[in-house]
Design a protein around this nucleic acid. Structure first.
Lengths: 146, 146
DNA sequence: TCTTTCCCGACTATTATGGTCAAGTAGGAA
DNA sequence: TTCCTACTTGACCATAATAGTCGGGAAAGA
């Protein structure tokens, strides 16, 4: 609960990796997979999906790979999570037991709380750009893998 | 993502229902199930588990049922969610792809963000008591089922 | 034209969720 | 003491989401 799926984490890590190599040409899936400990076939699927978001793009062939479209300070964690977890458009109760038919007609004592929690989380996600993450990693003095 | 499971929601609704009947004797599972649209056999399992938290207790026999142990303003949503989602104790990375063996030894650029999100959510959960929820429901003037 | 790398669709495995069911036990009422 | 009612307990099952795998194909360039 409240823990992002592995897919989400893999996606974020992959983009983080691309951000670190901004303006150094495309990065191969195999490199990202190795550096970030992600199963390569799965990462292929994920990155391919992410192309539709406009956040990343790719190039084929010998010097091919993936690269970030926008600069790391213009891409936020929220952008990625929102894209990967976008829900099919619905006008139903978003906070209820049942998404399709709320037994309380969309009005229950809890809904405002759920909404506030979601808001609080995405406030943080939206405020966190990949440039922030790079800076943060360097500040901590953690062993840099590149 | 960020949406509590049905089990969590059922548990919260059930306790909410008990809170509304505080000091009116035990409430039968069947009543709670009907009022809150919860499958009765499932609710039996959930309420039974919740007894271990000390939040609710039960009585058997003809006038039996479940009841709240503490007053509704002394029980928070956070108490319930924390109990239901408590994880087996671990000293490993709590924010990482792998809980048991973090490929980055528990140090990654994202961990502080995950922790802040979790914190922000539980700030809200902890601040929301069941008395608050009752008050809130009445303020809105929503149709009261009891 | 050959290698490298991404592309794409289908398929599979594992896990979590969301339950159900049956037999039992305790509390009272009659 | 008998019987009904309601909680108790453990095992069991169904479905869906997650977390992948696999194989062939297609572009880019050397």
């Amino acid at each position: 609960m409240l823990v992002p799926t592995k897919k989400n984490q893999y996606a974020l890590r992959a983009i983080f990796e691309l951000a670190k190599h901004m303006d150094q040409g495309p990065v191969k899936i195999s490199e990202i997979a190795a550096t970030q400990s992600i199963p390569q076939p799965f990462l292929e699927v994920i990155l391919n999906q992410l192309k539709a978001s406009g956040i990343v793009n790719s190039k084929r062939g010998f010097f091919g790979g993936y690269f970030l479209v926008k600069s790391p300070d213009r891409v936020s964690v929220g952008d990625v999570l929102r894209f990967l977890n976008r829900e099919p458009p619905t006008t139903d109760c978003i906070a209820c037991v049942s998404k399709t038919s709320c037994p309380f007609d969309g009005r229950c004592a809890f809904s405002s709380m759920w909404i506030r929690v979601k808001q609080a989380a995405f406030d943080i996600y939206d405020q966190t750009s990949f440039q922030d993450l790079i800076d943060r990693e360097q500040d901590t003095g953690w062993p840099d893998k590149q």
